[in-house]
Design a protein around this nucleic acid. Structure first.
Lengths: 208, 208
DNA sequence: CTCTCGATATATCGCCCCGATATATCGAGA
DNA sequence: TCTCGATATATCGGGGCGATATATCGAGAG
């Protein structure tokens, strides 16, 4: 799960742990605030698996690892000043870059079906956030698999006879409605996606 | 989290692990299917903490632990038959009973504020499921705390300017609407609760 | 000028939860 | 008889989380 998030973020550009944490908590903070206690072990796992590799980031004069000027890593000027003063500070800062193996792993994770588990929602939201990296057919498959999962859950919810007090009943009902809304939303997404596919490759309808 | 669920179920009657698992997965399975890998350690923790204690459940002729006839623990007839035949089978079956300390811990867990964390929703749903054991004021506090948490999340969601592609935007928007629905639902619950309180003790409005 | 404070940055620890798996008994039916 | 599914308890590895430790750096207070 976390692996996928990291891989997805690193597809754009190399980043170091702190920045990854911020992006996962803020930008992708739709749901889910990742902790260092999971992030750094995840980075080590990915490194061990050969999916990412360290690039020596720091002082701006290292041409080997050109970090984008878009403030993602600050402090280069300061580091340069220190070096001029004869100090070697260089606080430990490692940036990670996606390898070919990492790209491959990203693709596998994006299309793998972990089955409806506990963090269903997180998992789907994450995949949706990186949906743009998938070919159109894979996008549709992702959306439709989610749709069928939710539909199954809904019919299960409808089937179970109500046991419990007022509060439990109300919660159950609210969640049922909520799932229905989710399905409607998914249907919209699917429709949009189908239109886009039809517009981009209309010959598919004629040849197949 | 799991502790609270176990404690809550044991308030009704003593149960053994397997039955607890079933009830947590089915009856309370609104969300959340607990695994043995968490349940048995949780039982051990609770036992260590003195919140629950083992009652020797099995063969129906043990008057010390009168299990309710409501099929929660089956197999007594079979066990009796075996005993008649001279066999001592007695497959290991331990039922757990809530202690006074356990009742106390339940109260603490129900009213404690873990703050908006990851399993926000689970936690609230769980507390709502056992809401009936709380005094009315505590119920209202529970509902209102949840309301303020959701309201905070909503305003945060509204505040963050949209960054991301079509999919991320759509997801964000959908989740925003979803939270709004949740708030409406909570408001209904709160209103109902207030009416109930007013009906049960109308003098409160006059004396205070 | 110094001192502290908050942001930057990496890393680890213990705890909880989960899925998978092992083990064993028992009733029902092939 | 033999297998299958339900009953029942337990453990293992691994991931995620909150808390915490450590260290540097820029900025503002005194």
């Amino acid at each position: 799960m976390l692996e996928l998030a990291v891989l997805g973020l690193l597809k754009e550009q190399p980043l170091h742990g702190y920045e990854l944490k911020k992006r996962l908590s803020d930008a992708l903070g739709l749901l889910w605030g990742v902790s260092y206690g999971s992030l750094y072990p995840a980075l080590r796992r990915l490194e061990r698996a050969g999916a990412i590799e360290v690039v020596e980031a720091p002082p701006a004069d290292t041409p080997a690892a050109p970090m984008p000027a878009t403030g993602s890593i600050g402090g280069e000027a300061a580091a340069a000043r220190m070096r001029r003063l004869g100090k070697v500070s260089r606080r430990t800062r490692k940036a990670y870059r996606l390898t070919t193996r990492g790209e491959q792993m990203f693709g596998e994770l994006m299309t793998s079906d972990t089955g409806p588990g506990a963090d269903d929602e997180r998992s789907f939201a994450l995949k949706l956030a990186f949906c743009r990296y998938l070919p159109v057919d894979a996008r549709l498959e992702l959306l439709e698999r989610r749709r069928s999962d939710l539909a199954a859950r809904l019919s299960r919810a409808r089937g179970s006879r109500s046991g419990g007090d007022h509060y439990a009943l109300s919660l159950l009902e609210h969640r049922r409605k909520s799932t229905e809304r989710d399905l409607e939303w998914l249907d919209e997404l699917i429709a949009t996606e189908r239109e886009a596919r039809a517009a981009n490759s209309p010959q598919q309808g004629a040849t197949a």
